[in-house]
Design a protein around this nucleic acid. Structure first.
Length: 191
DNA sequence: ATATGGATTGCCT
DNA sequence: GGCAATCCATATT
């Protein structure tokens, strides 16, 4: 055998609820070109019943990707400056997504440093806007599958329950009770 | 047609 | 710790 390529997840992996997928994505590898990082922090966003979700007001041109098939990238601009990377979850027709908030840099670190203009490893991808800049992810990738192609999510590490921390989601003016943020406890790479 | 406010970051005091 | 930067979808007139 040669050219052994790591298997990515299938579309069915992302077909569950945003909460399930958010938990399961911890320890997966996010890959774009030569650059990649281990996912150490995520947040779950639901559909119309979730006041913190972009889909809380029903379908609009902006959030239409969230209603599409699972396993696609949902990328949008925040504060007019930063791109945010999410993966669509749940069945087509139902809105749901998981926001990836932080990565542990794995490969292409020189390229990431160049894009970020930062040397410090801990500041390379420890935040939702930082990791998209580090990996070169932009709105152009909105709707792209992460199961195949240039942008992929692959299985890598597994974190046991006691290593997984939870907290309310960050930066929302609503829903400060539910703990829909998942992160690797004690990781240096969390935002 | 115009006004508002973010799923943030980095630089300032 | 506080706040400006900066774009566009969405709400309001």
């Amino acid at each position: 055998m040669e050219g052994k390529q790591r298997e990515g997840y299938g579309e069915d992996f992302f077909d569950g609820s945003a909460e399930e997928v958010a938990r399961e994505l911890l320890g997966s590898l996010l890959v774009h070109g030569e650059t990649s990082g281990l996912i150490v922090e995520t947040e779950a966003y639901g559909g119309e019943e979730d006041p913190g979700s972009h889909a809380s007001g029903g379908p609009t041109p902006r959030n239409e990707t969230m209603y599409g098939p699972p396993g696609r990238a949902y990328v949008y601009v925040c504060y007019g400056i930063h791109d945010m990377f999410n993966v669509v979850t749940g069945p087509e027709g139902e809105a749901g997504a998981v926001l990836v908030r932080a990565l542990e840099p794995v490969s292409g670190i020189g390229e990431m440093r160049g894009r970020r203009g930062v040397e410090d490893l801990e500041r390379l991808a420890s935040g939702p806007g930082k990791l998209t800049e580090a990996l070169g992810i932009t709105g152009e990738l909105d709707g792209e599958p992460v199961t195949e192609g240039r942008l992929r999510i692959e299985p890598d590490e597994e974190f046991s329950e006691e290593r997984v921390g939870r907290s309310p989601r960050i930066g929302l003016g609503v829903d400060c009770d539910r703990r829909l943020r998942y992160f690797v406890e004690g990781s240096r790479w969390v935002s």
